[in-house]
Design a protein around this nucleic acid. Sequence first.
DNA 1: ACAAAGCATTACATATTTATGACAGTCGCA
DNA 2: TGCGACTGTCATAAATATGTAATGCTTTGT
Lengths: 242, 242
Amino acid sequence: MAVTILVVEDEPAIQELISLNLKRAGHMVLCADNAEQAKQLINNVLPDLVLLDWMLPDTTGIELARRLRREARTKSIPIIMLTARVQENDKISGLEAGADDYITKPFSPRELIARIKAVLRRRLPEMSDEIIELGGLKLDPTTHRVHVYALDDPSKTTEITLGPTEFRLLHYLMAYKERVHTRAQLLDRVWGDHVFIEDRTVDVHIRRLRKILEAVDKENLVQTVRGTGYRFSVEFDEESVE
Amino acid sequence: MAVTILVVEDEPAIQELISLNLKRAGHMVLCADNAEQAKQLINNVLPDLVLLDWMLPDTTGIELARRLRREARTKSIPIIMLTARVQENDKISGLEAGADDYITKPFSPRELIARIKAVLRRRLPEMSDEIIELGGLKLDPTTHRVHVYALDDPSKTTEITLGPTEFRLLHYLMAYKERVHTRAQLLDRVWGDHVFIEDRTVDVHIRRLRKILEAVDKENLVQTVRGTGYRFSVEFDEESVE
DNA sequence: ACAAAGCATTACATATTTATGACAGTCGCA
DNA sequence: TGCGACTGTCATAAATATGTAATGCTTTGT
């Protein structure tokens, strides 16, 4: 998946090293030398993950981490701390400040990539490339395919074709199944940050998604929660109260 | 395929033995007596695989492995460790340092070749010179030939001619079939690292490839995934939903 | 039952993404 | 040097996706 990673690191050599490795692993990389620059970058593009050096020239990394955690827009971005020292303290204060993981220099690229994957899996399931299988739908991010089958007869499957937005929407809803999402949340996380799109547009895409699902007898998976938003659910609640 | 292998081994006899066998198996061989020499060689020519002795005079093999893994340019090169001892420890620390496999001396040439093949297959499928046969296409990297036949009648085959780029592109797509590749990924892995070429150029080469495939009734193999990239697939998804 | 609010559905103009054909520069080789 | 094969880029056409607004339906509260 196209994951955007912000690297905040003042040492150019390390910054370059990390950047190269992340790019090779297929990520989009943004680099900042200090906290100030990082903030500006984040203002423009919301990264999916932040790699943050503990020791920064102006503000300490922890301070930046705190700030990121405080603001709504950046609250849910996973943070991995980079630390040169092996002090146990750093680990603790870093994790307290809201870091999701930490990694001590020197580290192998392999380890870095592995940590990133782990954090993404934990914090942003829709970013990890794992196959999601729910309620007779099987969505595979790597092949970009969605297969459908009847729950009582999984033997024969059909493939359905979704537009890019519908695909991302379904992926997101499935990754966070059973949870209700407001339109604003969906716009933020499926469309992306900073989009200035009508809330109602979400309805239309939900509609398009549903239309395709209806054609393969999966009408109840995408549900409306009146007054709130939408939800992907495999639990029946149609004729609950009659 | 022309696989370049770097052998890092201080004992001349063993170095010679390995070198001979690899050459016989059709590989390009580079030899280094120590880590320092190895680094210089790598500076000039990027090998496709490294055979690395555990015990080296100056730096230990593991140290070199770590360094190779650390640097972007060498990060993805598969490493096979050679070790004289049978200690279980060696295996573990070698693999930790990023070796892909290890082999204990003494070993038979046959085993060595087999391991190399296995590692290449695992790490860089498009490097292993195995014949790939998919959806009525048979691509042979060693002879650089592509044969086509109808799936319902494999008896008579036609040969098609591809330009160098189209060949590599097809090879790559077939080696990683069913997976969607963004244009950026294709540029990185088919054209090579760091090329500065327009994304759209990929489209043109896909077009050229398709044109040739169309001429032999293989139009659906190279598929477009709108908003993402391209994929080689043998699965039907044309008239999936009616 | 009625009005208001929230959601579904459809149609459509526009924007975005791909496909395609043409062209010019490069490189190897005769 | 000249020819031919190969590449990368562009312009344009074609395909398809997207956001919005208008309209009709449901639910909710009174």
